[in-house]
Simulated scan of single mutants.
Amino acid sequence: MRIAVFGATGRTGRPLVDQALDRGHEVVAFVRNPTDLPSALRDDDRVSVIEGDAYGGDGVDRAIGGDDPVDAVVSVLGRRSESPDDLLTEAGRHVLAAMDRHGIERLVTLVGAGVREESESVSLGGKVMGSLLKLLARSTLEDAVDHVESVRASDARWTVVRGPRLTDGPHTGEFRHGTGLALGVRAAAARANVAEFVLDCLEEDLYVHEMPKVADA
């Protein structure tokens, strides 16, 4: 499978690219600065590096269509302190538009577990975390919610992976997932485990048009 990865140089993107290669895939790594990607990956024949700006849309079409169109798209973009408030929303719109132009259907995107479904039952811990997010990171949550609304309204075969607090812990391969997964206040997920789950969703076509949560076991 040939996979376009947006956020390839981020803390979740890096293990995702490494694991995708280990699993026999080709990767189109979308980056703002190619030097942020290790030289071993830049020199790997299985990795195509596309420099651009997902927020403004520059390079997005080349990453998805280009001379050798991808089979699937993954977005693990994360906001930094200097990022615009609507990063995920705007970048997601450019990605979805390019997918539509080139007939690419499969998308897996990562957001925080604070994004809820309308009929979702939320645990007490989840309600506490939701309240804290609205208080401390309202713009981040609103951006993720708007992004998910755009994804759900698209013609893509999408999966929205929702993660709790992400850590840089070791890749254990031991994690729970599900649309009804209850997450407590202390729930966390190693980024490398989230990367594995994202690839599982692609390879096994899991959770199409669903919003599973994932957390370390």
Rank of each mutant, 00 (worst) to 15 (best):
D58C: 06
R138W: 11
P212V: 05
R62S: 15
K127S: 14
L41A: 06
G178C: 03
R101A: 14
A8K: 03
R162T: 02
A188W: 06
R176W: 11
G66F: 07
V73S: 12
Q19T: 02
R14T: 09
K134W: 14
V31F: 08
D61T: 05
V185N: 00
Y55P: 01
R2D: 06
G112Y: 00
E196A: 15
V160C: 11
T109Y: 08
E149T: 12
S48E: 15
P84I: 00
H94M: 10
V128F: 11
E196R: 13
G13P: 08
R2Y: 02
G180R: 02
L87D: 07
L136S: 03
L124M: 06
E149V: 07
V161L: 15
G125E: 01
S150W: 10
A91W: 01
L166T: 13
G24C: 08
N33P: 05
A113Y: 06
F175A: 05
G65K: 01
R14H: 10
V214N: 00
G56D: 09
G169Y: 04
F6G: 01
A144G: 11
E203I: 04
L136Y: 11
A97M: 09
E120R: 03
R157W: 14
D100T: 08
A189M: 14
G66S: 08
V73W: 11
G78R: 10
V151M: 11
D58G: 00
R32I: 11
L96F: 05
E196G: 04
R157E: 15
E204T: 02
A29R: 03
R186Y: 10
D67N: 15
L183W: 03
S119W: 08
V108E: 07
F175I: 04
A97W: 09
R165Y: 08
L206P: 07
L183R: 00
I104E: 06
E105A: 13
L21C: 05
A153S: 13
D155P: 03
V128D: 00
G178H: 04
E203F: 00
G59P: 05
D86H: 09
S154M: 09
A4T: 06
E203T: 10
D43I: 00
H147F: 13
V185C: 00
H25D: 12
E196T: 15
V31A: 09
D43C: 08
